[in-house]
C-alpha cells in the first residue's frame, strides 16, 4: 500500500532541522507562491524544493504525488483556456473549419501562462508541505505549533488527521473487500460511479465517527489539554535552519524587488 503524508524515520538534513524553521520556510513558500505571478520564479521555487528532496533522498515521496499534480495541472490549464482570454491567440481548441470558418475557444498566451502559474503554485505548496510532514515527527510538529501559540485543539486535530490517513486507507481496503464478498460491482458511467461510492463511504465515515469519543477521552486521560508549556530550548537550531529561512527570506526580497521595479 502506498503511504501518503506519513513521517519517514530516516536521517537527513531536513530531519535534523528545527520544526519551527521548517514551518516558517513552508509558510514562506506558500505565501510567496501566492504573491508571485512569474512562472519562471515559481518554476525555480519548485526546482529548489525538489533539489532539497533529492539531497535528503526523499524525491520518491514527491514523485508519488506527481501523477495527481499533473492531472490537476492539466485540468487547471484547461479551465484557464476556457475562461481566460488575453494576449495572443496561439491556436483554437476546436480548429477553424470544423463547425465554423473561424475557430472556437481560442487558446491564448495569457490563459496558458496563468494556467501554468496556478499549476506551479500547487506544485510548490504541496511539495513543500509534504517535505515538512515526512521529515518531522508528529510530536515535534505538535510542539512547534504549540510554541507559536496555535491553540492545542487545532494542533491535535492536525496531528490526528495525519495519523489516521494510513489507517483509513487500510480500513477502506477492508470495506472494499467486504463488499466485494457480497458481489459488489462498481457501477458504470458517472451516475453508477457516484452510486457505487455509498457502500464504501458510509461504513468508512460511520466507523470514523464512532471512534471519536474514545479518541477524545484518551487525549484527556493522557493530559494533552493540560500539558505543561514546552521549554523552547528543546527545539534546537542549527546552521541549516538559518540557511533555509535565509533562502526563503531572500526569495521573498527578490520577488518584492522584482515587482516594484
Amino acid at each position: 500500500m502506498k503511504e501518503i503524508m506519513q513521517y519517514i524515520n530516516r536521517d537527513s538534513f531536513l530531519h535534523s532541522m528545527n520544526p519551527l524553521s521548517k514551518i516558517a520556510a513552508v509558510a514562506g513558500i506558500i505565501v510567496l507562491s501566492v504573491f508571485t505571478t512569474n512562472s519562471a520564479v515559481l518554476a525555480l521555487m519548485v526546482l529548489g524544493i525538489f533539489l532539497a528532496s533529492l539531497k535528503a533522498g526523499l524525491q520518491q515521496e514527491l514523485l508519488k504525488q506527481f501523477k495527481l499534480l499533473v492531472f490537476l495541472s492539466l485540468s487547471l490549464i484547461m479551465l484557464t483556456i476556457l475562461t481566460l482570454k488575453s494576449g495572443e491567440t496561439l491556436a483554437y481548441l476546436i480548429p477553424p473549419g470544423t463547425f465554423t470558418t473561424a475557430g472556437i475557444v481560442p487558446i491564448t498566451t495569457g490563459a496558458l501562462d496563468f494556467g501554468v502559474v496556478l499549476s506551479l503554485r500547487f506544485f510548490a505548496m504541496l511539495f513543500a508541505f509534504q517535505l515538512l510532514v515526512v521529515t518531522t515527527k508528529p510530536s515535534d510538529l505538535m510542539k512547534a505549533l504549540l510554541a507559536i501559540h496555535i491553540p492545542v485543539d487545532y494542533v491535535l486535530m492536525f496531528v490526528i488527521a495525519l495519523r489516521f490517513i494510513p489507517s483509513l486507507q487500510i480500513e477502506g481496503q477492508r470495506i472494499h473487500e467486504a463488499q466485494l464478498a457480497r458481489g459488489y460491482k462498481p457501477g458504470k458511467g458517472l451516475r453508477g460511479k457516484i452510486m457505487s461510492v455509498k457502500p464504501l463511504l458510509v461504513p468508512l465515515v460511520a466507523n470514523s465517527l464512532g471512534r471519536t469519543q474514545v479518541l477524545g477521552l484518551t487525549m484527556d486521560m493522557r493530559g494533552y489539554r493540560s500539558r505543561h508549556s514546552v521549554e523552547s530550548n528543546k527545539l534546537v537550531w542549527n546552521k541549516v535552519d538559518f540557511a533555509a529561512i535565509g533562502c526563503v527570506a531572500l526569495m521573498g526580497a527578490g520577488i518584492m524587488l522584482g515587482s516594484f521595479m
Partner: peptide, 24 residues
C-alpha cells in the same frame, strides 16, 4: 479503553508513550 486503534494518536510507538509523559 477497548478500541486500541483510537487510543493511538501519534505515528510511532515511542512518541505515543513519550508525549503523555511530556504532557505531565
Amino acid at each position: 479503553f477497548d478500541d486500541a486503534e483510537s487510543q493511538l494518536i501519534f505515528t510511532s510507538v515511542e512518541e505515543e508513550i513519550r508525549s503523555g509523559l511530556e504532557n505531565r
